[in-house]
Each structure stands twice: as structure tokens, then as C-alpha cells.
């Protein structure tokens, strides 16, 4: 019961942050700020939805003592770790590419980065 509540909460949080990320992508003015929304919010949201699955697997594991739920749990964790690292690095790569492309940050108050033009 408590587990179900936890799962529900995790899903709610996850969906909220995912929605936030997508709205951020739509609302923000330039590439970098959109990347902020994309990277942080959707990664965080996805982690929480995955956490819900992990909680579910944990519950089933204790309930049935079936090895495959351990598989589900571990694979979910692996997927989350992979997702977090790849998203962060991907965001960096995109930001750098946009920078090299010559997009300067909108409404910037300070810009310390001088990359050579491609």
C-alpha cells in the first residue's frame, strides 16, 4: 500500500518535471536556456519515473522472491545511470556546437568564452 503510494508519488513528480522540461523547451528564448530545461528537468523526471519502476520491482521482488525482478531493478538502474551521463555530456556537446556555430546567449549579462570560429 505504502509502496503503491510511493510509486504514485514518484510518477507524479516524474511527469511534472518532464512536462516542465518540455514547456521549458517551448518557452525559453535561446538554445542554452532551452538546454537547461531539457537536460535538468527531463533527466530528473525520467529518473523519477524510472524510480517508480524500480520501486515496483523492489516490491515484487520481496513479494515473489523471483530473480527476474532483480533483473528489472538492476537494468532500470543501469538505464538511469546511462541516461544521466549521456544526457549531461550530450547537452555539453550541443552547447559547445551551438557556441562554435556562433550563437551567443540571449540577454547575456556576461560572456567569458571566446572560441575560435569554425
Amino acid at each position: 500500500m505504502i509502496l503503491n503510494l510511493l510509486i504514485g508519488a514518484a510518477i507524479a513528480i516524474g511527469l511534472f518535471f518532464n512536462a516542465l522540461g518540455v514547456f521549458g523547451i517551448l518557452r525559453f528564448p535561446d538554445v542554452y536556456t532551452r538546454l537547461h530545461a531539457d537536460t535538468k528537468a527531463t533527466t530528473f523526471g525520467s529518473i523519477f519515473t524510472s524510480l517508480a519502476v524500480a520501486l515496483y520491482a523492489l516490491g515484487r521482488l520481496f513479494e515473489t522472491a523471483d530473480g527476474q525482478y532483480a533483473t528489472l531493478l538492476l537494468h532500470t538502474l543501469v538505464a538511469v545511470v546511462v541516461l544521466a551521463i549521456t544526457n549531461a555530456t550530450g547537452a555539453h556537446a550541443i552547447a559547445r556546437a551551438a557556441r562554435r556555430r556562433g550563437h551567443s546567449p540571449a540577454q547575456a549579462v556576461v560572456d567569458k568564452l571566446e572560441e575560435p570560429a569554425p
Binding site: 518535471f17 516542465l20 522540461g21 514547456f23 521549458g24 518557452r27 525559453f28 528564448p29 535561446d30 542554452y32 536556456t33 537547461h36 530545461a37 535538468k40 528537468a41 546567449p105 540571449a106 540577454q107 547575456a108 549579462v109 556576461v110 560572456d111 567569458k112 568564452l113
Partner: peptide, 16 residues
């Protein structure tokens, strides 16, 4: 980020 998305109050910049 939630705060920024909802209010739209940003003050961006690139620092070292």
C-alpha cells in the same frame, strides 16, 4: 528550473 520556467525570470551569462 521549475521556478524559471514558470516565471520566465532569467539573467543568463557565460562565466569561467
Amino acid at each position: 528550473v521549475a521556478y524559471r520556467v514558470i516565471t520566465g525570470r532569467i539573467r543568463p551569462g557565460i562565466v569561467r
